[in-house]
Nucleic acid binder design. Structure first.
Lengths: 227, 227
DNA sequence: TATACTATTTATAAGAC
DNA sequence: TGTCTTATAAATAGTAT
């Protein structure tokens, strides 16, 4: 019997405290479970007794890991372990290094003029050659990109030719058979759809591939030179 | 008033569910707080409502991070693995980018380190200028050449489109006038052809744009390298 | 949303087993 | 540790504000 108002303060008696912990823990978990079911919520309870015993509750439709995962995503609270923080630091350093390298690339070229005071003719020639190679690389990449453009246009040409052939074929069929494609509505519609579908798939097969190809080529360039 | 036994099953009424969630959440947190104080325990509650709103309770004498850290230590659940793996992947990618950038620098200026001290500023400047001019020339010539190719293909495209239009016009005329050349086809195929044409033009509008976009991206790269 | 009211249902403290 | 019991404190569903 709960005789008298319960005071919310630490239960000094070790045994009573332990018993109350056990009872109230069950009560808490029960409440949590009811909340889960009644309100379609996900609840995670992690608790440690004064003697550091672990007890946990987790809603049946999820896992503690999931909840914690979500928790760190949603909240701004830093729940990471030291390990993770170290990784964050590593990531930060790598990003900084990358930034520095990019800055170097940007500024190395202009600085050539300032730094190369004592280059003799031989070294100059080899440097020239190497720079030419570099230019070639850039040029080739660009050529590849433009080549893709041409390829795409050519493919488009090809497809247009196909359409033309179909149109001509259409005309020919009508010329041969005046009833072709006319009266029967039911069957007609199906064939129309069928044709449209094929047509559509055809396009899907050709253009996106090339578009993607061109895009990935330029992506590579962007990645290497600009990123 | 709690009229009748409460059924522990999902409250279908959206409003009631929300209200109950709010009330019971407070109740749960209150219980958790009482448990904390009465039994000298540490409690962490993380919960998400059905609308994915986050609510949490944490005992005053600790932090959620501490509880989760302890939880992972005591239980065998590796709470961090997913994030750890994500971080590893990020790190791997950054390192790769890093490598690429370094390679780039080495490739672009392989002899820079060797020649740095012996370069003549005059020679270098003229060299630089010359190389820039040369590269510009090549680039322009190449671009012009490729541009011609594209133009030619586009013209071919255009003329093919004209032919197509004529063919379609042909079909339309026959559709409108049964006595024109052939027989009435009921109009069904006209719409089909109309659709095909629109469809095709649609493609015309989209993919070449992407290709051009890719090309201009590589132009930007060239610009950066030369500047 | 939250807060107040109130008839009921629940939780639970203390004790006994 | 649980698990009854039981008197009493708390929680809360439905409602209104």
């Amino acid at each position: 019997m709960a005789r008298g108002k319960i005071q919310i303060k630490r239960i000094e008696n070790q045994t009573n405290r332990q018993v109350t912990y056990s009872k109230r823990r069950n009560g808490l978990f029960k409440k949590a479970h009811e909340l889960t079911v009644l309100c379609d919520a996900r609840v995670s309870i992690i608790m440690f007794s004064s003697s550091n015993k672990l007890h946990e509750f987790i809603s049946p439709n999820t896992t503690t890991k999931e909840i914690i995962d979500l928790y760190q995503t949603v909240s701004d609270v830093d729940v990471w372990s030291a390990h993770y923080e170290r990784m964050q630091e590593t990531k930060r350093k790598l990003l900084e290094t990358n930034r520095n390298l990019r800055t170097q690339i940007k500024y190395l070229f202009p600085r050539l003029g300032e730094c190369l005071d004592e280059l003799d003719i031989q070294e100059l020639r080899s440097l020239e050659e190497e720079m030419e190679n570099t230019f070639k690389l850039v040029r080739e990449r660009k050529f590849k990109s433009l080549g893709n453009q041409i390829e795409t246009t050519k493919k488009k040409n090809k497809s247009q030719q196909d359409i033309q052939k179909n149109l001509i074929h259409e005309l020919e069929l009508r010329a041969e058979d005046p009833h072709y494609g006319l009266v029967d509505n039911g069957g007609d519609y199906d064939s129309v759809l069928g044709y449209q579908l094929r047509f559509h798939q055809n396009h899907h097969h050709h253009y996106p591939n090339h578009a993607l190809h061109a895009a990935s080529a330029s992506d590579i360039i962007t990645f290497h030179l600009l990123e």
